[in-house]
Amino acid sequence: MNHILRTAEERRREIQRNADRMGIDDAYISDLVETFYARVRADADLGPIFEKEIGDNWGPHLARMKDFWASVAMNAGRYTGKPVPAHAKLTGVDAAHFQTWLGLFRETLEDTAPSPEAIPYFMERAERIAKSLQLAMFGLPNMEPRN
């Protein structure tokens, strides 16, 4: 079996070419983040959670989310935050909120995506991120939390 080993830079270029082919660029990431978080802020369940945490400080949060999604979708390497601790400290969040978040994210993609294949491309990553954050915050279902 012949495995082809690629350098990190070769992998980064491949991801960037793939994103470019789907129409994913910084302008689209900006549109996605702005549109999505406007919907989050207007959502009856998610809005108050974000308002409590972010308040009037949306500019820095949106900039951080643009860097995050550019790094996730285009391997831009601009995000340096730690999402697990940032989410683990939140109060009033339950697993159902992640489904609401994912639903709004999918709707936003369906309304704004630059190409049809960009929707599953982003959703696969969003679902993986949501699952990771849920595991960090709530543990595995049907298991007792660790002490």
Score class of each variant (00 low, 15 high):
P141T: 03
E14D: 07
R17Q: 13
P85W: 08
A113T: 02
L133R: 00
G23N: 04
P48H: 06
D43I: 08
D43V: 08
D20N: 13
R64S: 08
R146F: 09
A8V: 14
M137A: 00
A19T: 07
A73T: 07
H61S: 12
L46T: 01
Q99N: 14
R6K: 15
I49N: 03
R39T: 15
L32S: 07
A73F: 05
Q134I: 15
D56W: 07
M74Q: 05
F98R: 08
G103P: 01
Q99K: 11
E127H: 12
D31I: 12
E53K: 14
V40G: 08
R125E: 07
T35R: 05
N142T: 13
R146S: 11
E144G: 03
M123Q: 12
Y79C: 02
E144K: 13
Y37T: 01
N147E: 11
R64I: 06
Q16K: 01
L5C: 06
I24W: 00
W58Q: 01
L5E: 11
Q99I: 05
S115R: 05
L109C: 08
D111C: 09
F36R: 07
A95E: 15
A118L: 07
M1D: 09
E51P: 02
P116L: 11
H97R: 07
A70R: 01
F68P: 05
A136C: 00
P145R: 15
P116D: 14
I54V: 15
F98W: 11
G92M: 01
R106Y: 12
V33C: 00
I29W: 00
G103F: 03
E51M: 13
A27R: 14
I49P: 02
A70C: 02
H97V: 04
L104Q: 02
R64E: 03
V72I: 13
L104I: 06
L102G: 03
D20Y: 11
E14A: 13
A130S: 08
M22I: 06
R11E: 07
N57S: 15
I54Q: 12
F105P: 04
D43E: 08
P116I: 09
E127F: 10
F68C: 07
I15C: 08
I129T: 13
N75R: 11
I119H: 03
M123T: 10
S132H: 12
I49D: 03
D25L: 06
